[in-house]
C-alpha cells in the first residue's frame, strides 16, 4: 500500500519549469531517495509537498487523503514533516524547547488554562517536555537540553532538526540533504540513525542527498530528477546501471554493472 502518492506535480518560476509533471509513490514504511544534479528541483519538490509554494498543477495524497492546497501547518499536522537543507532551528529557544514547539500543536490546553494556571496546563506541559526529551534521546542529544541550538556543533544541529521533525508525528518524513557538511564518520552515524528511527516508527522517509552512499544504502527505490523532470526510477542497483542517469548525474565514466 502506498502512503504518499504524488500525481503530475508541476511548478514554474517565471518561465523556468522547476518541476515538470513529476509523479511518484512512496510505499508504506519505506525509504526512497530523490537524486539529481544541482538545480534539478529536488528541494522544490519538498517545498511543494509541504505547501511552501502553491502547486501549478498536480495532486498530493497522503494515506488516500488529498493534501493539495492545504496551508503549510495543516499539511504538517496531516503527517508530512521535513528537515531543512540549510538548518533552520529556532535561535531564541533552547534545544529542548525547539523540539517542544513541534510537539506543541498537539497539546490540547487553551488560553483559559494559561490565564488560570490550571493543573491541566501543567500536566500537558510536563507531557510535552517528557515526550520531547524522549525524541532528543532517540537522536542522541541527551544532556544538551539547555544548550542554545546555534552553539551546537553542526552535526548535532542536524540531529536536532531530525528530533524536531519527529516530534510533529509524521507519516512521511522528508530529509533534505541530511548529510550535507558531515564528515565521513558522521555520515556513517547518520545512516545508522535514520535506519534506527525508521525501524522504530511507522513512517516512510524521502531523502534528498548528494552523498550517494546515503541514498544507495538506505533507499529501496530511487527517483532521479533532471531539469525538473523524472529521468529514471528504480532500485539503487538499477539506477547505478541506468545509462541516462550515469550520463546526466554521475558523469560519463564507464561503471561496472553486473545486471
Amino acid at each position: 500500500m502506498s502512503s504518499l502518492e504524488v500525481k503530475g506535480l508541476s511548478k514554474a518560476f517565471g518561465g523556468v519549469k522547476a518541476i515538470d509533471d513529476f509523479s511518484f509513490e512512496v510505499d508504506d514504511h519505506n525509504i526512497v531517495g530523490i537524486i539529481g544534479p544541482n538545480g534539478a528541483g529536488k528541494t522544490t519538490v519538498f517545498n511543494l509537498l509541504t505547501g511552501v509554494y502553491p502547486l501549478d498543477a498536480g495532486q498530493v495524497f497522503l494515506d488516500g487523503k488529498e493534501l493539495t492546497g492545504m496551508p503549510q501547518h495543516a499539511i504538517t499536522r496531516a503527517g508530512i514533516a521535513r528537515t531543512f537543507q540549510n538548518i533552520r532551528l529556532f535561535r531564541g529557544l533552547n534545544v529542548l524547547q525547539n523540539v517542544m514547539t513541534a510537539a506543541d500543536p498537539y497539546s490540547d490546553y487553551n488560553l483559559l488554562d494559561v490565564c488560570f494556571f490550571t493543573p491541566r496546563k501543567r500536566r500537558r506541559e510536563r507531557a510535552v517536555r517528557d515526550l520531547s526529551r524522549n525524541y532528543l534521546k532517540i537522536v542522541g542529544l541527551e544532556g544538551y537540553e539547555k544548550e542554545r541550538p546555534e552553539s551546537l556543533p553542526y552535526g548535532l544541529q542536524r540531529k536536532l532538526e531530525l528530533a524536531r521533525a519527529l516530534a510533529t508525528k509524521p507519516r512521511v518524513l522528508l530529509l533534505d540533504e541530511p548529510a550535507a557538511g558531515l564528515n565521513p564518520s558522521e555520515v556513517r552515524a547518520l545512516i545508522d540513525l535514520v535506519r534506527t528511527i525508521h525501524g522504530q516508527f511507522q513512517f516512510s522517509i524521502i531523502i534528498i542527498e548528494h552523498r550517494l552512499e546515503v541514498v544507495m544504502e538506505l533507499s529501496s527505490k530511487i527517483f532521479v530528477l533532471n531539469f525538473g523532470k523524472l529521468l529514471a526510477s528504480g532500485t539503487p542497483a538499477e539506477i547505478v546501471c541506468h545509462k541516462a542517469v550515469t550520463e546526466a548525474y554521475l558523469g560519463e565514466e564507464e561503471t561496472e554493472c553486473s545486471a
Binding site: Q72, T76, R77, R82, F90, G92, L93, T101, T168
Partner: peptide, 17 residues
C-alpha cells in the same frame, strides 16, 4: 518565539502562524 525567529520553519512544525 519560534515564529518570530523563523516563520517558515514554524509553519512546517505545524504551527498555525
Amino acid at each position: 518565539l519560534a515564529l518570530r525567529n523563523d516563520e517558515l520553519a514554524a509553519k512546517s512544525m505545524g504551527i498555525n502562524v
